[in-house]
Amino acid sequence: MSDDISYTTEEIAKLLKISKLTVYDLIKKGELASYRVGKQMRVDPIDLEAYKQRSKGIPMNEQPIKLESLTPTPTQPQATNVGLRPLVITGQDLVLDILAKYMETHMDGIRPLRAYVGSLDSLISMYRGESDIVSTHLLDGDTGEYNLPYIRRILVGNSYIVVNLLSRNAGLYVKQGNPLSLKTWADLATKGLRLSNREKGSGARVLLDEQLRLHGIKPDQLLGYNQVESNHLGVASKVASGEADVGVGIEKAASIVGNIDFIPLIKENYDLVMLKTANNHIWIEPLLHILRSDEFRKELQSIAGYDLSRTGEILLET
């Protein structure tokens, strides 16, 4: 096998038939050696084979530990990686990539890993111990409250801290000029409406399902309800191309895609959740310092569509 071959975390997940979060968990625990190329984590074939052999109980004479480098050296001793703790950050917003960059620059001894997972699945992954910093924007239709009802239900028995990252407008993507005059959630009952939907577990999917429930609209009334996209841009693009009449998402995606109109219907909180454990206390305070810093806020201010008035505010601490 060529020395030039390496695998992404997505490829490792497919090869082992496990989730990407499980791959990150193996990396966090030091069971699967990895290194970074740009923003992407890579795993060499020899390290994948070493993990597989260990899983079968077969020892290998050489199990190299690699430095965080573009040109890893197979003979590096394990001691070179001591103190470098991987932290898995879940969520899909660009702001999380910016946050990861700041963490890597300003926090010693940590290695941010980005997992592009929806809000509900992110909280479940935290309950399972697979993620460290979870982003979430989940509406509870009965209370009108964002995130906290879900966090309380899912993270039962854990101590945690919930911090606001930002707020943003969510609503409907519609064709330019809004030819169907869609203005409210109730208008989703319009006969023959073609929907571009998000995957189960995403904040946009939960928002849609809660609004359908509250307005007595059955999902099967919407054509395309079961046809899903993996992100806001995908949904907005379906509307822009004319393949769908409506989609649910955030304002920023509409401005990026263009050729569509955005109907703002709700302001959602996009929050971060962290477990309060003895091992996490060492990095939670530095992270809060980054969130509250002028430097971080100024960079986010250059991105349209975000309300940063509560960024870094602790919403709940148990």
Rank of each mutant, 00 (worst) to 15 (best):
N158Y: 12
E229S: 12
R213C: 07
K191L: 15
R114M: 06
G91Q: 01
I314H: 08
L67G: 11
N164G: 15
Y306F: 08
E313T: 01
E145N: 10
M107F: 00
G157C: 10
V134S: 08
L48H: 12
V239C: 08
I110V: 15
P59C: 08
S196P: 11
S159A: 15
P72S: 12
I98S: 01
V246P: 00
K28E: 07
L182C: 09
L315K: 00
Q211G: 13
K298Y: 04
V257E: 03
S55Q: 10
P112Y: 01
I5M: 09
L212C: 06
H281I: 15
D187T: 08
V228Y: 05
V248E: 04
V95L: 13
R114H: 12
N231P: 05
P77L: 00
G91E: 01
S202F: 10
L308D: 05
L212A: 09
D294S: 07
D25G: 11
N61Y: 12
T75H: 02
P59D: 09
I124V: 14
D93S: 10
A33E: 13
S237R: 11
S196M: 07
R36M: 06
L222Y: 02
L155K: 07
G201L: 03
S167K: 12
G30M: 01
T105K: 14
V163N: 08
D294F: 13
I65F: 11
N178D: 11
E285I: 05
I46Y: 01
R297Y: 09
P74V: 02
V273S: 09
R194H: 04
M274P: 02
D307F: 10
G203L: 02
T184E: 02
I260V: 09
G234R: 00
E62T: 07
E299I: 03
L94C: 09
L21F: 12
Q78E: 13
S159R: 09
I263T: 02
R85V: 10
T311G: 10
E62L: 10
I98W: 03
V88I: 03
L15T: 12
V156S: 15
G247C: 03
R111P: 03
G57N: 06
A253Q: 06
V246I: 11
E130T: 14
S131F: 04
G91L: 00
G177H: 01
D307I: 14
K66M: 03
L265A: 05
A170I: 13
L316A: 07
P77H: 01
R54V: 00
E49Y: 14
S159K: 15
L308C: 14
L193G: 06
R168A: 15
Y160H: 08
S309G: 04
G157D: 12
K56T: 02
A79C: 06
K218P: 11
K298S: 08
R128P: 02
L96V: 02
E49H: 11
G57Q: 07
L315T: 02
M1F: 11
G109Q: 03
E68L: 10
K29C: 01
